[in-house]
């Protein structure tokens, strides 16, 4: 279950520079994108979708890649965030965006805590079925709890506002999602370097060893679920603004699978990987809508092909190339899989 290794022995300084260059490039492209394509609302909306999906994929990667827990119900958490944001905005239309976002995040975190409670006892497939249950149940509850969710029609999501500024245009929504996602990624990146973040990975690698090191395994897992849900809730709120509508049909089981596929195609336990995986799958999905019926074929085909060619996901490409170059001779003898750490 261990992820593809991210550090390359030797050339660590070079790798750091490359990393910062990449982060810089992403931020510059992200800031400039609407300046270039601002007139093309379709392109801006797709770009926003990529950003929001990237954040949700990262929230799931926390759980799957860094925490070693499986989840088939991330769309359920996203739905809670989306509905929470839409509901509170409907009640208090002038609510500042940060408050709305915090409300959505906190409510989703509570759901995540509840979901995390049985994980002390459940793992593997049993956990998969519990999370699957959440993913299936939330849209059904949303469909039937009409007094809050307005049933099948769903809730219209009012534009977010900060003071007198309404974030309604596609470009404004783009920047809103971009800023929130960047801040979230920074927070997640920092969190992973703290004691708690390292505890996630220790529990993933071996629960027994982690417990022996004095880590409270159950509390760590519950924290992990809560943190993942927190960011899924933020993603869900942005998702609602992106779609202008939250409805039960917008959060099918297949959406949860989509996020899981994005995590694995990008590379588990890799933040850049999740971004790339989400962008690749969103583009595969949106660019084929003009060919009705080809969407699932293209998305499924991309997933299958990427995994067959690079089982470690796209994030494993640089590491794989470097390792191939540096120890080609030795590797030829060990015809193991490309995914390093596959045998852990």
């Amino acid at each position: 279950m261990s992820p593809a290794s991210r550090t390359v022995p030797g050339g660590r300084a070079a790798a750091r520079i490359a990393q910062w260059a990449m982060v810089g490039a992403v931020v510059v492209i992200g800031v400039l994108f609407p300046q270039v394509y601002g007139q093309d609302f379709y392109a801006v909306t797709i770009a926003t979708e990529c950003i929001v999906y990237a954040l949700i994929t990262i929230s799931l990667n926390l759980l799957v890649g860094y925490g070693g827990q499986i989840s088939l119900g991330q769309a359920g958490l996203v739905a809670i965030g989306g509905y929470a944001g839409a509901y509170i905005l409907e009640k208090v239309p002038s609510l500042p965006f940060p408050v709305e976002l915090a409300f959505a995040a906190v409510l989703t975190t509570i759901a995540g805590l509840i979901l995390g409670l049985p994980t002390g006892r459940l793992r593997g497939h049993y956990l998969a079925v519990v999370t699957l249950g959440l993913g299936v149940a939330i849209p059904q509850i949303a469909l039937n709890l009409t007094s809050i969710t307005n049933g099948r029609t769903g809730l219209i999501v009012n534009p977010a506002s900060i003071g007198s500024l309404a974030l309604a245009s596609p470009v404004a929504i783009y920047y809103m999602c971009f800023v929130v996602t960047c801040l979230s990624v920074i927070a997640i990146h920092s969190l992973l370097k703290t004691r708690t973040g390292r505890a996630f990975m220790a529990v993933r690698d071996s629960e027994q060893a982690a417990a022996a090191m004095g880590i409270n395994v159950q509390r760590t897992k519950i924290t992990l679920f809560a943190v993942s849900a927190f960011f899924a809730g933020i993603g869900g709120d942005l998702f609602g603004h992106l779609q202008n509508l939250v409805a039960p049909g917008a959060f099918p089981f297949s959406l949860s699978l989509f996020f899981l596929a994005a995590v694995i195609v990008g590379g588990s336990a890799s933040l850049p990987g999740s971004v790339i995986g989400a962008i690749l799958l969103v583009l595969a999905d949106t660019q084929t809508t003009s060919l009705p019926g080809f969407e699932p074929v293209v998305v499924g085909g991309v997933v299958v092909l990427v995994l067959l060619i690079i089982p470690g996901g796209l994030a494993a490409v640089p590491a794989t190339l470097m390792r191939l170059r540096s120890r080609q001779g030795r590797r030829r003898a060990r015809t193991g899989s490309l995914a390093s750490g596959a045998g852990d």
């Binding site: 279950m1 297949s254 699978l257 998305v299 299958v304 995994l307 089982p311 899989s337 596959a342």
Partner: peptide
Amino acid sequence: RLRRAPITIQIVLTLGLLLLIEG
């Protein structure tokens, strides 16, 4: 072909296959 890959990767491979076959 993915016999040696971690089990999560094999599971996601079947998810990809699910979409592909349905499509």
